[in-house]
Design a protein around this nucleic acid. Structure first.
Lengths: 348, 348
DNA sequence: AGCCATTTTTGGAACGTTCCAATAGAATGT
DNA sequence: ACATTCTATTGGAACGTTCCAAAAATGGCT
């Protein structure tokens, strides 16, 4: 009696019809809440459903209706808390929309990405939210977009015409840089990220803009690329510290790079926020918990995810062909790592 | 020409058959890599597929075959990095199994949990990995398990017969406690978690066992419940500090509680690891980054996820009715927050 | 009672695949 | 030339639903 799992032919709409003494069409109408069926009939039908333990077969339904209620969520690096928060935001926004998300982690592999995208199409996904892996080909996105609604999130892809949800990287980086300049810093470095990432280019552009507006030059030696990971930040910062005239402040590509950099600073016997100012980017939950607490640029990660989900849903439901772009505001969150809270100037 | 999305009837197996000059049955055989078809035919068919841009309809296939390649992943709190890591482990293990996971976050709501489980059944999920929400009813799990394979992860549910993947909470807590005892502590508290959580009970049991084995009594006043969150840890620790004879060491329910507790300690003008020893549980990535670095019990979170996925797959593929239980080892990771690294004894 | 309008119900075809039993074609042995 | 064994291929039914056009039931009005 425990686990009648294997045997039992599943209960179908036809079984319900027989039990309730109506036709399968009527049952179908009840299922879709049609106002056409008489109340008494509806009750008989729902009673039969409970009695037999009916479970709706959405697969069969979407086969017939030629559209499904599945969407795909393709994330380049789920282990990164920033993208995890994004995924949660997406999931939350999808929650009451009658749509259910597939999830896949591509781990920055375009090969894997192609695989999962294919799999999602095979499963009939009605749309896709995609945080593209590094070096994703614009043409591929273009082609994908001609088959189903696609919303690109976080990472813009130059040349790909698709809806887009990103944070305002240029303004955010500029704001962070201005803050450091206002604190008196003149020798400011930009640390982390790799050159062909569009996000990197945008953030460097914001950094450069702020520096130039303050009449400060940006020496190429003060822009240090690295993998956008904690180790990357650690190594890049270590390099930076060994140079004779080291910067007094550092704008980091993102929070994990910043955290790596702070580790390097500590290892060097210095204190972030006292001897050298650090700001991050993204405001992941870690930024708050690290010590000293990280000054960073908040991009409302969850909100971006929700926005991406909304745009996707609209495109699915209204068959919109239009290309939406949402740029989330980037707000500076001042904590301790920039030294502002110490009330004293690091800058010499 | 951009986006022939709306119009185009999708390409089916029948279109391919016509194009390649064979029957749909033959195309189907090619699709399932049957050795029955002649090589030359196979090539003609695959060529036709490329030419027409065919995409396999798995929905239709699973309707006919009466089994699907979808599994559900139901997580009680995705915003908690511990469960996020678990989810990633599951995803990773599923990656090359030809199965694709739905994901849902229940946010500890049994109502929401019932909804998503239902939705997953409606989508024909072949199995479920479930991190049950608080207060999940054993009978419900039991019933669910009679319909499809279910693997419970992290949280045991008393009275529910289902496969289970958990960490060794009793041994882990005991090990952490023993470590503190060996450092000379005698007044040790257990902090955080709520009484009716099985995980809480197990960890308290381990704590108690270690204390008793060392001939130490466990005063009820030294077991402080709280929500298993950072705020919960903060508040509970604050209460504990205001008592006249405060403990010299604290075993925390998990890492986020421990981090909250450390915040409270700092707020009190004391230093974790110097004035009071703290150990956490779970070894989330945050534990490493917090300062002082958190001594904690590592449970190989990703590994637990992978194990859960493996067990589920086996049950799906081999139709196993058997109830597997995997208990992951709990290893103590000594960092700084317990004071051991300072080489000096806190205990009076 | 008969007619019309309205409300409710219905049978069959269709969605894209797989399965099965049956067939056709090729190769072998006599 | 014919039966026999393989090897390849095939048409039709089936999976559980929705859609459509049409039929049946109901109610109101003469």
């Amino acid at each position: 009696m425990v686990g009648a799992r294997s045997a039992a032919r599943p209960v179908t709409i036809i079984d319900i019809a027989r039990e309730a003494g109506v036709s399968k069409s009527t049952v179908s109408l009840v299922l879709k809440m049609s106002p056409l069926v008489k109340d008494e009939t509806r009750q008989r039908v729902t009673a039969a459903m409970d009695a037999l333990g009916y479970v709706y077969n959405r697969g069969a339904a979407s086969l017939r209706r030629a559209r499904s209620d599945i969407v795909g969520m393709v994330i380049n690096d789920l282990a990164n808390p920033f993208f995890a928060e994004l995924a949660i935001g997406i999931e939350r926004a999808l929650q009451n929309s009658g749509v259910i998300p597939f999830i896949a982690n591509t781990a920055e592999s375009v090969v894997r990405q192609a695989e999962v995208v294919r799999s999602m199409r095979e499963h009939g996904a009605a749309g896709l939210i995609l945080c593209p892996a590094l070096d994703t080909d614009a043409a591929e996105i273009e082609r994908l977009g001609s088959h189903l609604p696609v919303v690109l999130a976080i990472r813009r892809i130059i040349g790909a015409r698709a809806s887009l949800v990103v944070s305002d990287n240029v303004a955010g980086a500029a704001r962070a840089t201005e803050h450091l300049i206002n604190l008196g810093h003149r020798d400011i470095a930009f640390l982390g990220g790799i050159g062909h990432m569009v996000v990197f280019q945008d953030r460097v552009a914001g950094f450069t803009r702020a520096m130039n507006q303050a009449g400060l030059a940006v020496q190429p030696s003060l822009i240090g690329e690295s993998m956008p990971t904690k180790d990357g930040g650690f190594n890049a910062m270590s390099r930076l510290l060994s140079v004779d005239r080291r910067p007094t402040a550092v704008v980091c590509f993102n929070d994990v790079v910043a955290i790596g950099a702070m580790l390097a600073i500590a290892r060097y016997g210095l204190a972030a926020g006292r001897d050298i100012a650090i700001v991050g980017f993204d405001d992941t939950t870690e930024a708050r918990h690290v010590s000293p607490a990280l000054t960073t640029v908040s991009v409302d990660t969850g909100g971006l995810g929700e926005r991406a989900a909304q745009i996707l849903l609209r495109q699915i439901n209204e068959g919109e062909r239009r290309r939406d772009t949402y740029t989330g505001e980037a707000r500076l969150v001042v904590r301790e790592s920039c030294g502002a809270r110490l009330g004293r100037r690091i800058a010499s």
